[in-house]
């Protein structure tokens, strides 16, 4: 079975920065059938609001990981939308235009409904790349001003129907997040994050369709065989499993 992991952090709070550590991840992943991993960067290393220089450091590390991987790792450009459209555009041009990154990663600098998101989305349109937005249930938290609830990410997708959105963390989005995502053809949900809570993957496929659920792990916080087991143990047909584990990501990233 071929697998693309759309949600990984090969460098995580500076761990994994050494070449031998990258090789270890690749060796382990290849043994398990992985052919690509999307490297989203060490996005919280400088806190939730990295400045321009810090954003460049994070993305330069991703570029280094891509070089080491020789095609195995695909980079997404980590951005802080609050730095303004000019800075955002400069970094997207540098990473996507100059270094072969294939998407944009947004963490928790601002909520997905913040006006500053417009600059990011215009850059995504211009470069024709998907945007992966960290999303997590905010009902039990008080951080929604900067942390996106699945309903916020769905609102973003609704406002920008010509941008491909990846709503991260199926477990964090939960059943409510899946319900919110119905009817949004430009949004897929990735299966990363949290423990392997039962019922979510099959419910997402039932409610959204098999083309709108894509495998992700959140490595190194998550264990690869466990993350894959969420898909293979969800009672889906072999062809649907393959769609979630490989085909949907390949189509989304035009591999």
């Amino acid at each position: 079975m071929r697998i693309i992991d759309i949600h990984t952090h090969p460098v995580f709070f500076n761990a994994g920065i050494e070449p031998a550590e990258t090789q270890l991840i690749m060796r382990r992943a290849r043994q398990l059938g992985f052919v690509h991993m999307i490297s989203l960067g060490d996005v919280l290393r400088f806190g939730r609001n990295p400045d321009e220089e810090q954003s460049r450091i994070i993305n330069d590390e991703t570029a280094e990981i891509m070089k080491r991987g020789r095609g195995f790792f695909i980079g997404f450009c980590a951005l802080n939308p609050l730095l303004g459209e000019k800075v955002v555009r400069r970094e997207v041009d540098r990473c996507v235009g100059g270094m072969g990154f294939r998407g944009i990663k947004l963490e928790v600098s601002c909520n997905a409904q913040h006006p500053a998101m417009a600059g990011v989305m215009r850059a995504a349109v211009e470069h024709d790349v998907p945007v992966l937005q960290h999303s997590w249930n905010q009902l039990n938290k008080r951080s929604r001003s900067y942390h996106s609830d699945p309903e916020d990410t769905c609102a973003l997708a609704r406002r920008w129907p010509n941008v491909r959105i990846i709503m991260a963390h199926l477990t964090g989005c939960g059943f409510r997040g899946i319900r919110a995502a119905r009817g949004l053809d430009n949004l897929v949900v990735d299966t990363s994050g949290g423990g392997p809570e039962a019922g979510l993957v099959d419910y997402a496929v039932e409610q959204l369709g098999e083309h709108r659920v894509v495998y992700g792990s959140d490595l190194p916080i998550r264990d690869l065989p466990t993350a894959v087991g969420r898909i293979t143990g969800a009672g889906l047909s072999a062809s649907t499993q393959q769609r979630l584990l490989y085909d949907n990501a390949a189509e989304l990233l035009r591999i």
Partner: peptide, 19 residues
């Protein structure tokens, strides 16, 4: 495994496919 609240296959993999 915490079945049925968690996916059983995922937790089985954690042990059986461990290095």
């Amino acid at each position: 495994s915490l079945t049925p609240l968690h996916g059983l296959a995922a937790h089985v993999n954690k042990i059986t496919q461990s290095p």
